[in-house]
Every structure is written in structure tokens, then in C-alpha cells.
């Protein structure tokens, strides 16, 4: 835990203002489209609320059980193959949209988790375990297996590339 705590303040007021302006423009030209978009957004929000709850609980749990030193040991500069495996597996197991994970990732980075592992985590998320049967049904077993294999390879490659860029 760091010394002084920042006072609470909402972040991203500019983005919410931008989205508001976009909706005002849409409503001005096509009210029905605007309503449909609002309904759709409401459904998306309801669907990912449980994911947000899981992310909050998971972040709090990690902060409770792991000290920053331990996190750095497992996912920091000297983490090696173990860190890569943790990033790959947690990426594959994670659920929900990418942006739902930003708060946790920001927190982990603040504790010293290296960027290349975060990149590996984000790319490995392309494998969606619960949807694999559906993917096999649509695109076949060979496609699903080869895509999954190359996603994992691509995640490691991207982690390596970002690691090299960070050193420049």
C-alpha cells in the first residue's frame, strides 16, 4: 500500500461528454436508431455487470493475499517462463470484454507487473474457452485447433516484441 491516498474523483469525463454528443447527433438525425442503440447499450451493461463484480472481487482478493513484492516475483522483470505461463493461462481463463479488465491491469502495473506479460494476457484472451464448441461447429475442429495454437504462439511473440520495444 502506498502512503497518501488520492481523493475520489471520476475519470474520463471527456469520454462520457463525447459519447453524449455522439448520441445527441444520432438522436437529432434518427431518433429510432438512437433509442435502439440506447437499448442495446443497456443490455450490454446488464450483461457485463457480473464481470465487473468479478473483476472488483478478484482485484481486492489479489491485493489482500499478495504483497507487491510477491507479485513482482511472479510477474515482474525476473519472472521468466513462470510469468509467461501465468499470463497465458489467466488470459485464456479470463472472461468478458477487454475494457472490463483495465482497472485490474492498471492496479497490477502499479505493483510492478511487466508490460510484456500484460500484452501476453490480453492476446491470450482471444481464446474463449466457453465458446470453443461453437467455434468448432462453425469453422471446424482443425481451424479451431490451429487458430488456438497460433493465438498462444502469437501472444508469446507479441510479449517478446513489446518487451524489446520497452527496452529501447
Amino acid at each position: 500500500m502506498k502512503g497518501k491516498e488520492k481523493p475520489f474523483a471520476f475519470r474520463g469525463k471527456f469520454f462520457i461528454a463525447l459519447a453524449f454528443v455522439v448520441y445527441v447527433v444520432v438522436f437529432f438525425f434518427d431518433q429510432q436508431l438512437g433509442l435502439l442503440a440506447l437499448q442495446k447499450s443497456g443490455r450490454i451493461l446488464l450483461k457485463i455487470l457480473p464481470v465487473f463484480a468479478v473483476v472488483i472481487l478478484f482485484t481486492a482478493f489479489l491485493n489482500y493475499v499478495l504483497k507487491p513484492k510477491q507479485l513482482v516475483k511472479h510477474l515482474g522483470e525476473e519472472s521468466g517462463v513462470k510469468g509467461l505461463c501465468i499470463a497465458l493461462i489467466s488470459g485464456v481463463l479470463s472472461h468478458g470484454p477487454m475494457y472490463a479488465w483495465y482497472p485490474l491491469i492498471e492496479d497490477l502495473r502499479g505493483h510492478g507487473v511487466k508490460d510484456s506479460l500484460i500484452v501476453v494476457f490480453f492476446y491470450a484472451r482471444a481464446i474463449k474457452l466457453p465458446f470453443l464448441p461453437l467455434m468448432i461447429d462453425y469453422f471446424g475442429l482443425i481451424f479451431t485447433l490451429s487458430l488456438s495454437f497460433f493465438i498462444l504462439t502469437g501472444a508469446l511473440l507479441q510479449g517478446w516484441i513489446v518487451g524489446q520495444l520497452e527496452r529501447m
Partner: peptide, 19 residues
């Protein structure tokens, strides 16, 4: 609280994705 502070960002993304 840290998550709550990010709500405006998340809501704006969700709004644009819905659109």
C-alpha cells in the same frame, strides 16, 4: 472506489459499442 471512478469511461465505451 477505484472502479467506480472509471465508470464514466466504461459507460462511454458501452454506449459507443451499442451504437
Amino acid at each position: 472506489l477505484a472502479f467506480l471512478a472509471m465508470i464514466p469511461m466504461l459507460v462511454s465505451i458501452i454506449g459507443l459499442v451499442g451504437l
